[in-house]
Design a protein around this nucleic acid. Structure first.
Lengths: 221, 221
DNA sequence: GGTAGGCAACGAACGGCGTTCGTGTCAAAC
DNA sequence: GTTTGACACGAACGCCGTTCGTTGCCTACC
């Protein structure tokens, strides 16, 4: 039973494994084939190895996804143009976009105190802008909490529309039909305001304005 | 080879299967042993049957969880005391509590236009309160969107603290240490505002006030 | 009373999954 | 030349969600 050593030159230049390579491959798989396809086995196969090999660089699937999230947040570009409100708008919008571009990643950010390098960069910038707006320390701190929560939630919502098989329009019209068939005596407001509920308009921008205005009018404590 | 009919009296009073029984059992399992234990097999075993039997009443696991969410939202009590702002506060708080009491259920609400009977009841009440506050139809509609998103997000966050093994205190102090070790040149604001970031206080109530104040100061379009 | 039809119940299986364990392998350190 | 230690990985464990085909019971009709 000869153990013929297979020449490694047969498949040359195989890139060495590394945390970064794994994380980037994970994002590739996620973007190409969706959240269900993001399995340890699939990522390993993409790197031409077995799933066990990944665990040297990654604690588990959750750890991988957290790393992927921070990698995605690295795409957020910080700018210094416009009023602090405009900059805060732009920053938050960019963060939502960066997260929602990859299905399921935003959900990782929810209920986690951010600790990734890039997430903290975004947080730091948010704090700077809020201080620039004249808020006291405590209010700024609570505000960044709220803004981050909203960002993650908005991205999660966006994300499901972007991917989950059906597009936004299908989902919305399905809900519209459901609301139209509701008994008016049990759901009077939904019935009478149904048109407004599904009216078009830039709700994301409006939401952010609500948060900013609210923060300015609501001192902590 | 005798097919001896096993007397069903040996295990009597086996409750017949039903969607409701499955949903309630699901909540039981979830509350008792957490999200990881909430499997079709486990719920089936709890009902003394096999997993295949569940699929008569439930399309799949997601469908089950959606039903469980709405069942949980049935616990929200609607009240008619106090100003509309106070009522909105109470309603939202109750919804957050109802959802966050069951690990992972709040996440189901995120990125889903609510269609469950009980969810719609909460939405309808929210709309009524907002109209009572004098908002026009469009602003009220957008506001209920935002409030629902915030409610689901807050519940998701709460939920992970309530369960996920470690309690809130552990998680927070871990983050505090991480922030304390951050390089001040790269993260100047986080470093200098660290104390405020982890300061105690009722952030949930404050957040809701931010939303309400913001909504009042930000007409839609 | 007998029988046909329909449907809830379910046993078994399929094709996955995350993660662990033990064994190779190879390059650097001594 | 030998030792050492980290990386790589094949194989396996114990799960998972879901489907298929059969069974057995209950009902409605003759």
């Amino acid at each position: 039973m000869s153990t013929q050593p297979i020449s490694r030159r047969a498949r040359p230049a195989k890139a060495p494994l590394s945390r970064d390579a794994i994380v980037r491959t994970g994002l590739d798989v996620l973007d190409r084939d969706g959240l269900d396809a993001l399995t340890m086995r699939r990522v390993a196969k993409e790197l031409d190895t077995g799933p066990a090999s990944l665990y040297v660089y990654v604690a588990n699937r959750d750890d991988l996804m957290a790393a992927m999230l921070d990698e995605a947040l690295g795409q957020v570009r910080l700018t210094w143009e416009g009023t602090w409100q405009e900059q805060l708008q732009a920053l938050t919008t960019a963060a939502v976009e960066a997260m929602s571009r990859h299905e399921g990643l935003a959900a990782v950010a929810l209920g986690t105190i951010p600790t990734g390098d890039n997430a903290l960069l975004v947080l730091d910038r948010m704090l700077a802008l809020l201080k620039q707006g004249g808020l006291d320390d405590t209010t700024a701190a609570w505000a960044v909490d709220l803004l981050w929560l909203h960002t993650a939630a908005a991205a999660t919502e966006q994300s499901t529309y972007n991917t989950k098989g059906a597009d936004e329009e299908t989902t919305v019209t399905a809900a519209d039909r459901r609301y139209a068939a509701l008994p008016a005596d049990r759901y009077p407001m939904i019935t009478s305001l149904r048109q407004a509920l599904f009216s078009p308009g830039d709700r994301d921008t409006w939401s952010l304005n609500v948060l900013i205005n609210g923060i300015l009018h609501t001192p902590a404590r």
